[in-house]
Simulated assay, not measured.
Amino acid sequence: MAMASAQLQSVGLIAELIQVSESSVRQVIYDFSTFGFEVLDPQRKGTADEDRSSDA
């Protein structure tokens, strides 16, 4: 997803190609922008929303 986004593909097209919701695509792109390659670690748990809430 991050590669397709970097190639300026639309969220709708990415979602259609990999058969997920547009909101899932947006969340992965946001997480990748926030956390970088760490977000690709299969043992990493949670999303950016959960990480932000734990800082409060």
Score class of each variant (00 low, 15 high):
Arg44Cys: 03
Ala15Trp: 10
Ser23Arg: 07
Val20Gly: 06
Lys45Cys: 04
Gln7Ala: 09
Thr34Val: 05
Glu50Leu: 11
Val20Pro: 00
Arg44Lys: 10
Gln19Arg: 13
Ile29Phe: 07
Ala2Arg: 13
Asp55Leu: 09
Glu22Ala: 02
Ser24Ile: 10
Leu13Val: 10
Thr47Glu: 04
Glu22Phe: 00
Asp41Gln: 09
Glu16Ala: 03
Val11Leu: 06
Ser21Trp: 01
Leu13Phe: 15
Ala48Tyr: 01
Met3Gly: 11
Gly46Met: 13
Ser23Cys: 10
Ile14Pro: 10
Ala56Lys: 14
Thr34Phe: 07
Phe37Tyr: 08
Arg44Val: 00
Ser53Val: 15
Glu50Trp: 05
Ile18Leu: 06
Ser21Ala: 00
Ile14Asp: 01
Leu13Glu: 14
Val25Asn: 05
Ser33Ile: 05
Glu22Pro: 05
Gln19Gly: 04
Pro42Val: 14
Arg44Leu: 10
Ser33Asn: 13
Asp49Gly: 02
Pro42Cys: 01
Asp31Val: 03
Arg52Leu: 10
Ala4Gln: 11
Phe32Pro: 13
Asp55Pro: 15
Val11Asp: 11
Ile18Phe: 14
Phe32Asp: 07
Thr34Gln: 11
Glu38Arg: 01
Lys45Arg: 07
Pro42Gly: 09
Ala6Leu: 12
Asp31Asn: 10
Ser24Gly: 06
Ser23Glu: 11
Met1Phe: 07
Gly12Leu: 01
Gln43Ile: 11
Glu38Ser: 03
Gln27Thr: 00
Met1Tyr: 15
Asp41Ser: 08
Val28Cys: 08
Leu8Ile: 09
Ala56His: 12
Ile14Lys: 00
Val39Ile: 01
Ser53Asp: 12
Thr47Arg: 06
Ala6Ile: 12
Arg44Met: 11
Leu17Ile: 15
Phe37Pro: 15
Ser5Tyr: 14
Ala6Pro: 03
Gln27Arg: 02
Val20Ser: 06
Val20Trp: 06
Gln7Pro: 07
Ile14Phe: 08
Ser10Met: 06
Asp51Pro: 08
Asp41Ala: 01
Val11Lys: 03
Val39Asp: 10
Asp49Ile: 12
Met1Leu: 13
Ser54Gln: 15
Glu22His: 01
Gly12Val: 03
Val28Met: 08
Ile18Met: 03
Asp51Leu: 10
Ser10Cys: 05
Gln7Met: 12
Val20Cys: 08
Glu16Val: 02
Pro42Glu: 04
Thr34Leu: 13
Thr34Ser: 11
Ile29Lys: 03
Val28Ser: 07
Leu40Gln: 08
Leu13Ile: 11
Gln9Met: 12
Gln7Ile: 03
Gly46Phe: 15
Thr34Asp: 11
